[in-house]
């Protein structure tokens, strides 16, 4: 998978942060851990679903596509007994229309995502890129359709969900080529995404969610109204969660040049943490009401472990 190396986002500050290409987004070790999971859709999907995705349309005639090995959780009724008789192994028959999960990954590429704390291995955006790539890989690997939306204050790229083999490369290239810049406006973007996705499916939002919790909830509500399953993956730096600064500092807004605040961090720390906590609580409460998964990812921890944990939790809930 030789992809052209793209310049890294302007705000990403170290060489380690700069991916040499799209393939660097898929580290073998991380993929190995994640790909053991199947992305489970907890809702009944629209369309024809086979295999993992339960469908009300059982017994509908389908075009055979391929066999694949049986894994725990598959409906035993779908085991191809003929193959079993020949090969003494369990195989599932798969058909063309079994790729019915349509996962749209919405990646925040605003300048605020470019933050990288002194102790963070990756910037928030690089972290988000890895998460998006991993998700795309997993979704496509299980023959489902994956799409991508990158945005700042407007939609920067919109790749419709597909399950074709070339889709992964396209998604990875788009993810990797996207720099983190400009202001974010996640609320309007989600409204727009809700309007532009015609078939219901899964929408995974990867962002720091620095947006008014009310507006955000409203936007997510719109998506839910369109009967999408929504997963909010909130990426935050450890610094943003603990505010460890001690000396007098001048905080410069990453999204707005010239917006600076000179203050004593010790004085505002308590208030800051209070504001973060309130925001998070409002988000969590709002998302819980909408039955939306909200996962906070800390950039100081490995993204694959976080994702694997989440997927395992989803599998358990099924």
């Amino acid at each position: 998978m030789a992809l052209a190396t793209q310049p890294s986002p302007a705000a990403d500050r170290t060489a380690a942060d700069h991916a040499p290409g799209a393939t660097s987004l898929l580290e073998p070790a991380a993929l190995q851990r994640i790909s053991r999971m199947e992305l489970m859709a907890s809702q009944v999907m629209d369309g024809y679903v086979q295999g993992l995705h339960r469908s009300p349309h059982v017994g509908f005639a389908l075009d055979f596509a391929q066999h694949r090995p049986y894994v725990a959780g598959d409906d035993v009724r779908r085991i191809d007994w003929r193959v079993f008789a020949k090969a003494d192994r369990y195989y599932i028959k798969q058909y063309e229309v079994s790729t019915n999960l349509r996962c749209q990954i919405v990646l925040d590429a605003s300048a605020s995502m470019a933050y990288r704390g002194p102790n963070d291995p990756l910037s928030k955006f690089r972290f988000a890129q890895f998460v998006a790539a991993a998700l795309a890989y997993v979704v496509l690997h299980q023959q489902d359709a994956a799409g991508l939306v990158t945005f700042d204050s407007r939609v920067r790229a919109f790749v419709p969900a597909r399950s074709t083999p070339s889709q992964l490369m396209r998604l990875l290239r788009t993810i990797d080529e996207t720099p983190a810049e400009r202001e974010s406006g996640i609320g309007p973007i989600l409204h727009e995404v809700a309007e532009r996705i015609d078939r219901r499916g899964m929408v995974v939002v990867i962002s720091d969610l620095f947006e008014d919790a009310g507006k955000l909830t409203e936007a997510v509500h719109h998506l839910r109204h369109k009967r999408h399953e929504v997963i909010l993956l909130q990426v935050m730096s450890d610094d943003e969660l603990t505010f460890p600064f001690r000396t007098w500092s001048e905080f410069e807004n990453l999204e707005q040049a010239g917006d600076k605040m000179k203050l004593d961090p010790a004085q505002v720390r308590a208030g800051y943490l209070d504001a973060v906590a309130k925001h998070q609580k409002a988000l969590t409460d709002g998302m819980a009401k909408l039955n939306v998964s909200h996962l906070l990812l800390n950039t100081s921890k490995p993204f694959d472990a976080a994702l694997a944990t989440y997927l395992a939790r989803r599998a358990g809930r099924k």
Binding site: A114, T247, S249, E250, V268
Partner: peptide, 28 residues
């Protein structure tokens, strides 16, 4: 003297910082 020395910090979560400063300014 303490006030004079500051170091620049590029920062993303300005919304929380602004909220905390506004909230605690008077009492502090």
């Amino acid at each position: 003297l303490h006030r004079q020395k500051t170091r620049p910090v590029p920062w993303a979560a300005m919304m929380f910082l602004r909220a905390s400063v506004l909230q605690q300014k008077h009492r502090k």
